[in-house]
Amino acid sequence: MDAELMQREFMYPGHVACPGCGAAIAMRFLLKALGEKTVMIIPACCWSIIAGPYPQSALKTPIIHCAFETAASTASGVRAALDMLGDTETTVVAWAGDGGTFDIGFQALSGAVERNDNFLYVCYDNEAYMNTGIQRSSSTPYGAWTMTTPGRDWKKMRKKNIVEILAAHRIPYVATASIAYPDDFIRKAKKAKEIKGSRFLHVYTTCPTGWRIPSEISIKIARMAVQTNIFPLYEVEDGTRYTINYRPREYLVREYFRMQGRFRHLTDKDLDQIQKMVDEDWQRLLSKAGQG
């Protein structure tokens, strides 16, 4: 990363994210890429707290807090207003968690991207409702414990594949990114910034609190998610052109799962099953990228 990018910050310290919060890191990276001419739309999510209580702000860009389900529609409105004001320079960003994206905000998101509304939607995915205290979302991965999938009721359903759903809308740009790969992340954010129409970034953001992991391995876990193919880094342009950005060393998912308290209950058999699921998804992705 060049020195200028390294130096520029659009976030203030003193924000109130948990120690090791991946979402805080993701915001830093995103704004490094986008710069100050950005309006952040933030629905209910961890970041509605992290950004600081009134009268504080943790960002050097404007933030419009909005209702849980309305990140995309609010962003559409902000974009429409800027266009009417003749401001085509400012980047409008909807910045939502997985709950606000996969679940409650899904309709608004689908609607906005179907209209190809001109903004960047970033889902920082910590795989559960973390701000409310770790409840299951449709982004919670198979096998995970949460407060609403306790004990033997651990989640038995797959994580919703939001990237494929977005790609199916045939929007100009959909990509995954990880806090463990800052250069890739920032490149994608910059690329997204230059594209007109709906753009979607799915960002993997570790949650030490909710995943029951030590905060210091926050980045390491994110890296392992990529290395194990659990969270592949790829881009889909116009819903059809797939590019895989990182060919992992294909570590076993077991190593990733065994490091996290939320998966502690899983047996070796469960992990074998999960490995199969991950392998299968990876093969499907490879074939979409024409590398199968």
Binding site: Q7, A17, P19, G20, A24, I179, S215, I219, K220
Partner: peptide
């Protein structure tokens, strides 16, 4: 780069930790 709390400060070539904000997550060390 990875500090979630912008608590690693670079002054010239010298890096220091701003303990006013460092929450001690340990990411920098790992």
């Amino acid at each position: 780069l990875f500090c979630p709390d912008l608590a690693v400060i670079k002054n010239g070539e010298i890096r220091t930790i701003n303990y006013d904000y460092c929450k001690g997550c340990g990411i920098c060390v790992v």
